[in-house]
């Protein structure tokens, strides 16, 4: 067992875990944050993407022990309140950017990071290129891209996580 301390969605948590615990397992099983999904469990699908110390991570592919001291933002950490969606979440809703919704948390975390880096300059080619690591098995990419581009035009979407 190994003790780890993380700041998850702004709150410091310390747990003693099995050394082989993956970040995604820690979030879901230890903290009950089940918004981060396990899709493929082989570093391909991106359903488990979170933002760790300012960069996206497929959280099925990191030992939580290796992230001791890190700041983690999950899909649960985006919305400012119970009744208000984050601008990227709102854009996904408006533009029907989800069908079954399984890939959505990873898509939105990826989109938040993408918008933070590119701002309102974000174009469709870049969005499609940077979604390489996120798979939607409903193949609903068209509206996902639309939602991300719309959110990028919202001044409130940048720098909000």
């Amino acid at each position: 067992m190994i003790e780890v301390t993380l700041k998850v969605n702004g709150e410091e948590v310390t747990r003693s875990v099995d050394d082989r615990t993956l970040l995604v397992t820690f979030l879901r099983d230890e903290l009950g944050l089940t918004g981060t999904h396990v899709g493929c469990d082989t570093t391909q699908c991106g359903a488990c993407v979170t933002i760790v110390d300012g960069h996206t991570l497929k959280s099925c592919t990191a030992l939580v022990a290796s992230l001791d001291g890190a700041e983690v933002t999950t899909i649960e950490g985006l919305a400012p309140g119970e009744d208000t969606l984050h601008p990227v979440q709102a854009a996904f809703r408006t533009h029907h950017g989800l069908q079954c919704g399984f890939c959505t948390p990873g898509m939105i975390m990826t989109a938040v990071d993408m918008i933070r880096r590119h701002g309102s300059d974000l174009d469709e080619t870049t969005v499609r290129h940077e979604l390489e690591g996120n798979l939607c098995r409903c193949t609903g990419y068209h509206n996902i891209v639309k939602a991300i581009l719309a959110a990028a035009r919202e001044p409130a979407a940048a720098g909000t996580f």
Binding site: K58, E132, N134
Partner: peptide, 9 residues
């Protein structure tokens, strides 16, 4: 290499 998330790590 890989994708944007893979390149971060």
């Amino acid at each position: 290499i890989g994708d944007v998330h893979v390149r971060n790590h």
